[in-house]
Every structure is written in structure tokens, then in C-alpha cells.
Design a protein around this nucleic acid. Structure first.
Lengths: 156, 156
DNA sequence: GGCTTACTACTCGGATACTGCTTGTCCGAGTTCAGGGGG
DNA sequence: CCCCCTGAACTCGGACAAGCAGTATCCGAGTAGTAAGCC
């Protein structure tokens, strides 16, 4: 069970976008910032657009821009945009299969295993929702003068 | 990002073991209880043995038995036994790559994205650790007379 | 009768496919802007 | 000077290939218990 690496790419890309003076950047620039494969990064950014975190503009001078400030974006938004909203634990309802499934009276209500798993997963999602990209940006690039370095890295 | 189906198998199998009058059962019985592929279930049970949740006995009258009562086993134990202890989010340290990695002064300390992700993941693991198999068993098979039905399903 | 040996039933662990998801690439279609040509 | 047309730059979306982890199976090795054989 591993989280897609696209999540890490998306987090850094969103933070980078928030640091630029122009509010828009091309995929090529965003990919070069961290040496990421351009075509595949595009795929991840499309997920962010569909999730309403980014806005894409076609044509020359086009590119991607933030749909809202990073302070209002959480890790949960990014994870669910990239990974999708489906729960991590997928209950196959094996309690209804095999000899026990045949012997047991037909049970109503959801599987207790699924319920417990979802409870834990909700705690995880809530914790992700408490982590804003704004705070992460501060810890990553909060030192004075760093913003100018980032902006310089985008001039090419 | 999906959790292995072996986790669901392991949870049900552990609970079934706790309901039997004899404290030991063969893989064939445990697999037939929920119509699971016997060979692959063996692989999952081996993980549980290595994690100290099960004890395996070779030879005739051998089989698997619980290493401790299900009340003292949590979903966290099972998930970490099957999935391994590795964190779900694997930081590739892309902050050090590409143009930003070259322009930035070498940063000390761990990546802020990784730290935030692990904080959320800890909340998830803690929540898993609060779900005991004993309570799940009660919700699954707590009704009177159900234990006898389960035991009957194992007689063959 | 007691001890040893052989057999049987079972688990263990590795080797080996198969499958589906993740990762990565490519290209045609659509969109927007700029620049040039014609009125 | 203004409008329209064309081309360039860019994103979008799907199709497609490669790699890898999860899924599943099989078989030889090892082990424990039992039964038979030997002293």
C-alpha cells in the first residue's frame, strides 16, 4: 500500500506556484523546478484542475494558476484530488462467502470490519485536513530571501 | 492507493479462530470458512506468525492458533503485519532536485511535506490501534447462538 | 515392553506466473493570443 | 486605422507502453506425531 508519488509532486508544485510574482506558470517551468517528467506531471495537474485547486489557461501566455490561496488548501484536498475519494480499505464482504456465509443467518447492516476501518480512515483524513499548504510552505521556504531564489529558478 | 485484501482475510480469520472450541485449525478449514484461496491465505497467515499474532504447529493435528486473545489484538497489529511497517507516503525528496534543488541552499532537517504526512499517518495508526478485534467480533457475531453456528461451519 | 525407525500429515518457505495498478510517453484536438494582410 | 484570417504556443484528453507491486499457485524441505518393526 503506497501513496502515489504524484501527491508529493502536486504539493510542491502548488507551493511553488504560490511563491511566483506572476500568478501563472507553464508546465515546462513547473516540471523543471523539480526535474519531473513533464508529460506525467501534466496528468497530475489535470487532476488538480478537476478538483478545483488549479485553473488552467490555454493559448500563449497560458499555464496553470492557483484557484485559491495555498493557506486555504490542505493535504487532504491534494490527496483526494490525486488518489481519488475512494476509501483505502475495500471490503469484499467475505463474511457472506464460504461455509460461514452459508451457515450464518443473513445479516443486515454493514460489515463491522468495514465500519471500524472507515472510522480509522476518517481520523486520517481529518488529520490531513488540518495540515494546510500555507504552513508547510513556511516550514519549507520560510527563511528570508528564499522566495527570491525560488523566483530566480523560474526565470528561463 | 488500496489496502491489500489480505487484511480483511486476516481479520476474519483471527476472529474465527477465537470462536472455535479447539484453539487450533488447519489452513483448509480457515480458507473454506470464507471461500478463500488456500495457498494464498497461507502466505498471509505466515505474515501473522512472523508478527507474533499467530502460532503455527507442524505435523498432524497441526495448524494455526492465536498467540494471544483477540481482545488484545488491534486493527493496527493486523494492518502492520500484512502491509508492513513502512509509511504510506514515501518522500522522494524532490525538493532537492531540479532547478530549485540547485538554487536552494542545502537545507538541513527533514522535508516539511514528509513531516506533515507522517503526522496525519500517525493519527490513522493510532485510530487503528484503538479498534480491537474483540469489539469487532462482538458486532459481527455478538448475537446469541451465533457462536455455535460458526463452530458448526468448521466441522468437516 | 521399550526403543528405534519409517511413514504420514501438516506447515514452512521459496520459486514462479499472472494480473492490475502505477508510472511514463505520445499525439491529435481544441483554445487562445499575436501578427500580418486586406479593406 | 480597423477587421479578419492565419499561424504559433499552449493545454486537454485519450490511447498506449513499460515497470512494478499485489495476487495466486505450486512444490520441495522440514517437522511433529503415529504406527510399525526390532531388540
Amino acid at each position: 500500500m503506497r501513496m502515489s508519488k504524484g501527491v508529493e509532486w502536486a504539493v510542491h508544485t502548488l507551493i511553488n506556484l504560490s511563491l511566483l510574482d506572476s500568478d501563472r506558470a507553464r508546465v515546462g517551468q513547473l516540471a523543471a523546478a523539480h526535474e519531473l517528467p513533464e508529460a506525467y506531471l501534466t496528468k497530475q495537474l489535470q487532476h488538480l484542475v478537476r478538483a478545483g485547486l488549479l485553473v488552467s489557461t490555454a493559448g500563449p501566455q497560458g499555464g496553470y494558476s492557483l484557484a485559491r490561496p495555498v493557506e486555504e488548501i490542505t493535504l487532504r484536498d491534494v490527496v483526494e484530488a490525486i488518489e481519488g475519494p475512494a476509501p483505502v480499505f475495500h471490503c469484499a464482504e467475505i463474511r457472506r462467502c464460504g461455509r460461514i456465509g452459508e451457515f450464518m443467518p443473513p445479516s443486515d447492516g454493514p460489515c463491522a470490519v468495514k465500519v471500524a476501518m472507515h472510522r480509522a480512515e476518517t481520523a486520517w483524513r481529518d488529520a490531513l485536513g488540518a495540515e494546510s499548504l500555507g504552513r508547510i510552505r513556511t516550514e519549507l521556504y520560510g527563511k528570508p530571501g528564499v522566495t527570491e531564489v525560488i523566483r530566480a529558478a523560474f526565470l528561463f
